[in-house]
């Protein structure tokens, strides 16, 4: 009886592992495939095997990808634009959340609902009119053409998360601060903000993940390489190296790398942030 119980326990354990490994393989194998062929020769693609062992490892593919893909410039742009968007979203959403949540005024509910409405508006529906507007104001092909919509469409989520997190900050702290003669701004930036550190991280991660992927707007509003973001390395390469698959694979692997590496290093924090944000929102 006891033996059988142990055996069935072992079987369950085995099954658990089998399922988890199977799913992991599905999730990861395409990426391994990508890496494998990015080091091969273009003609070696046409095999019927699952993976190839390249005759000679073609590091040159990555050199081409790195140089002709404007990798460094586009990476810098991506980090800069996304970084600024994150900062602005945090700043604006904390300010608005504080005003709507803590301060007393008639329209607070209305303004909050209005700002949250943005969550329901599909970002791509504003593509056509915004193109017109940015052209009129001379904003196309500048960083603003990306920054404004990125911040505007991440703001509702930020605001939503900030208001719900703010509830957990005890009012007594603020009261004490007011006694000491603090102004509102100091209260927000010196008392509330430090208390919201982990929520800020959540908003930052969510905003970053939202905008990191975006390229439709970038490809519509931008024309010179000056502000182009990382996805363009891939988009431009399919034309540039249309007859060399291996280099295309290399550029895909290269563009995917920064985000994956950062994720693997910070995975605990990021998972926590996403989990916190998603369950609330």
């Amino acid at each position: 009886m006891k033996m059988a119980g142990q055996r069935s326990k072992k079987i369950t354990k085995f099954l658990l592992w089998a399922i988890l490994i199977f799913v992991a393989v599905i999730q990861i194998f395409p990426l391994i495939w990508l890496l494998d062929f990015s080091l091969a020769n273009s003609t070696e693609m046409f095999t019927s095997g699952l993976l190839v062992i390249p005759e000679k490892i073609q590091w040159g593919n990555y050199v081409k990808a790195f140089v002709d893909g404007h990798f460094l410039l586009y990476l810098k742009n991506s980090v800069l634009i996304n970084g600024l968007a994150v900062l602005l979203v945090i700043l604006v959403s904390i300010m608005a959340a504080f005003a709507c949540r803590r301060m007393r005024w008639k329209l607070s509910m209305f303004v909050k609902t209005l700002l949250l409405m943005g969550m329901m508006i599909p970002i791509h529906a504003t593509l056509l009119p915004n193109y017109k507007i940015y052209n009129m104001l001379g904003l196309t092909d500048t960083i603003w053409a990306l920054l404004i919509p990125y911040v505007a469409f991440s703001l509702p989520q930020g605001l939503f998360l900030m208001t719900s997190f703010m509830e957990s900050v005890p009012v007594e702290l603020e009261e004490a601060a007011v006694m000491d003669g603090c102004g509102i701004y100091r209260i927000i930036f010196q008392i509330i903000m430090p208390m919201l550190k982990s929520s800020i991280a959540t908003v930052a991660i969510m905003t970053f993940l939202n905008n990191w992927n975006e390229f439709i707007m970038a490809s519509t509003y931008l024309s010179s390489p000056k502000w182009k973001t990382l996805p363009f390395s891939v988009l431009e390469f399919t034309g540039q190296y249309s007859s060399n698959y291996a280099v295309q694979f290399a550029v895909m692997a290269l563009t995917a790398a920064p985000a994956v590496i950062v994720y693997v290093i910070l995975n605990k924090h990021i998972t926590k942030g996403v989990a916190m944000g998603a369950v609330k929102g």
């Binding site: 980090v79 970084g83 900062l87 550190k197 982990s198 800020i200 991280a201 930052a204 924090h269």
Partner: peptide, 23 residues
């Protein structure tokens, strides 16, 4: 952990600002 994240955030801030200035 919180300190790490805060450090990270400040890091991002400094980098982006520096990059912004340089550009």
């Amino acid at each position: 952990k919180k300190r790490l994240l805060a450090a990270l955030l400040t890091g991002v801030m400094v980098v982006t600002m520096a990059a912004g200035c340089s550009s």
